[in-house]
């Protein structure tokens, strides 16, 4: 926990304070990490989001039909995706794919003395390794969430048009009418918070690895479990703040 707090403080220093003292972070590694963390995760995110959209529409059809309220299917798909399923499920995918990869990569660097070599070359590992990954994650998780939301809505549309009595225009109109911009923004705020949680936990796990290949494995598993738990708890807290307490 002490390491985790230190990592966060040092990260804030390198992002918020160091650029004003002439140590601006390099841009190229950030883009490299964005491709790795974000772009490569897009197919998985698309598949997940599409399945979720389809599932939501099918479940909604089943329940709402019995109430004679089929017209609300797009509303339900849209709001559930934007507020909850989009940010949470895409964060789950990114934890499993990118968070674990970052923890394993940094952990391997730690056990093979690469981190120590950086320190001896007077290169700060937080500045050199963590900052690009952090910024990439902070940009890419919200971007993936927006992308996933679209694909999920597409999944809902597929069910509505091909299996139910909706036409495309009807689906789109209904979906747009029901959702508010706040539904989107709340999801975005969540995904920014999740991005922070995922990448700091992954980097911390990687940088504190001890004891060879076995340690790397344990740290990777720990990072996934911790990030999932922290993310889900934080989701409940944020939903409470955004939609329940207000």
């Amino acid at each position: 926990m002490k390491n985790y707090i230190q990592l966060n403080l040092s990260l804030l220093y390198w992002i918020l304070i160091a650029p004003f003292t002439g140590q601006f972070f390099k841009i190229a590694p950030i883009f490299r990490q964005m491709v790795f963390i974000g772009v490569r995760a897009a197919p998985m995110v698309a598949l997940t989001a599409f399945s979720v959209g389809v599932t939501l529409a099918m479940q909604a059809a089943h329940s709402l039909e019995s109430l004679g309220a089929e017209m609300y299917i797009p509303d339900l798909v849209m709001i559930t995706l934007l507020r909850e399923m989009g940010p949470v499920l895409i964060a789950v995918i990114v934890i499993g794919r990118s968070g674990s990869a970052v923890a394993a990569e940094l952990g391997t660097m730690k056990v093979s003395e690469e981190i120590e070599a950086l320190q001896v070359m007077a290169i700060n590992p937080v500045q050199f390794l963590v900052v690009p990954r952090f910024l990439a994650m902070m940009v890419m998780l919200p971007a993936l969430t927006i992308f996933g939301n679209y694909i999920g809505i597409l999944g809902g549309w597929a069910v509505c048009t091909f299996a139910l009595d909706f036409n495309t225009a009807g689906y789109v109109l209904r979906a747009l009418e029901s959702a508010d911009t706040w539904d989107l923004y709340s999801g975005m705020i969540k995904s920014v918070v999740f991005a922070w949680i995922i990448i700091t936990i992954a980097c911390n796990a990687g940088l504190t690895v001890e004891g060879g290949a076995e340690g790397v494995g344990q740290a990777t598993t720990a990072s996934v479990v911790q990030a999932l738990l922290a993310m889900l708890v934080m989701n409940a807290v944020l939903t409470g703040i955004f939609f329940f307490a207000a």
């Binding site: 660097m109 070599a117 001896v120 007077a122």
Partner: peptide
């Protein structure tokens, strides 16, 4: 402090047992 150590580290080089090259 770490910051001051970095200044001294610029004056020496170190060869690690495994080479410790960055694999990426």
């Amino acid at each position: 402090k770490e910051r001051e150590v970095e200044r001294v580290r610029l004056r020496f080089g170190m060869l690690f047992q495994s080479g410790a090259l960055l694999a990426s």
